[in-house]
Design a protein around this nucleic acid. Structure first.
Length: 249
DNA sequence: TGGAATGTTCGGCT
DNA sequence: AAGCCGAACATTCC
């Protein structure tokens, strides 16, 4: 469950059911130090999901491409870790095995400020000297944390900026507006419970519905919702990139 | 069959 | 230094 809105959706759901519960059993020895401890807090840092069991004791999950964190039900063919709490069981499923589950992951220390929280001032300061394409910059987790391919494509379409434009060629106004649009599409993603195009399901195994509101991601060959030109696909930084060649200059 | 897939990291080249 | 590219991770789907 890849990007910020999907992790945030799971976070909001599990906050309601997991806080206060005691961890009774774990599927792997490496998590045994958490046994019989209670969940103090659930939080999200960028695309990382964290369960806190006390001072400096977090269980962190990264879903990478196909991870799922499902509360209740039964294990599946792709279940990689199981955490049994007093009132229910949490399954970490990951078909492609790129994801990870770690105690106190160091990875979170490398993350930039959260995409939903970063100020315009800080965003401009971090970006304005860069010469790399704007899409690469906003997906760089060390710069801002949480934006992945779907929402990066859609935010760039919303702000009418070409994904390939070098950051230092964008005006202050364009960058300011882009940050607004990044936050807008992320909030919309959360509102719709995330994007379920392939593997993502929420903490109760249900699909999100942002896929019904996507602007350009994977829409190549279709008409732009703004100007009716045909959406184009290119590859940028090794990732599929979708944009309107007419209104995203 | 080949290519692509919501993420991240690493090595190598310019 | 900064940026770019391809490969790697493992698996499925079209």
């Amino acid at each position: 469950m890849p990007e910020l809105p999907e992790i945030e959706t799971v976070k909001l759901q599990l906050q309601k059911v997991l806080v206060g519960q005691k961890l009774l059993s774990v599927s792997d020895e490496k998590y045994k130090s958490l046994k019989y401890k209670s969940v103090k807090e659930i939080r999200r840092e960028g695309k990382v999901f964290l369960i806190n069991f006390g001072p400096n004791l977090d269980l962190g999950f990264h879903f990478k491409m196909t991870g799922q964190l499902v509360y209740g039900g039964l294990p599946t063919k792709h279940t990689r870790a199981i955490f049994e709490f007093t009132k229910g069981t949490l399954y970490f499923n990951d078909m492609r095995k790129f994801g990870w589950v770690k105690i106190n992951p160091e990875f979170t220390k490398t993350l930039g400020e959260d995409a939903l929280d970063i100020s315009t001032h800080k965003f401009l300061k971090l970006l304005k000297e860069l010469r790399k394409p704007i899409k690469i910059a906003i997906m760089d987790q060390k710069i801002i944390a949480g934006v992945g391919n779907i929402y990066a494509n859609d935010a760039l379409w919303e702000s009418a900026v070409n994904p390939r434009t070098p950051v230092n060629q964008l005006s202050i106004n364009q960058l300011t507006n882009l940050l607004k649009k990044i936050k807008l599409v992320l909030r919309e993603g959360i509102k719709y419970g995330g994007t379920s195009l392939s593997d993502y399901v929420d903490a109760f195994g249900k699909n999100g519905s942002y896929q019904d509101h996507i602007r350009v991601y994977k829409k190549h060959g279709e008409k732009c919702k703004r100007c009716k030109s045909i959406i184009k696909r290119i590859v940028l930084g090794g990732r599929g990139t979708y944009y309107c060649p007419k209104c995203q200059i």
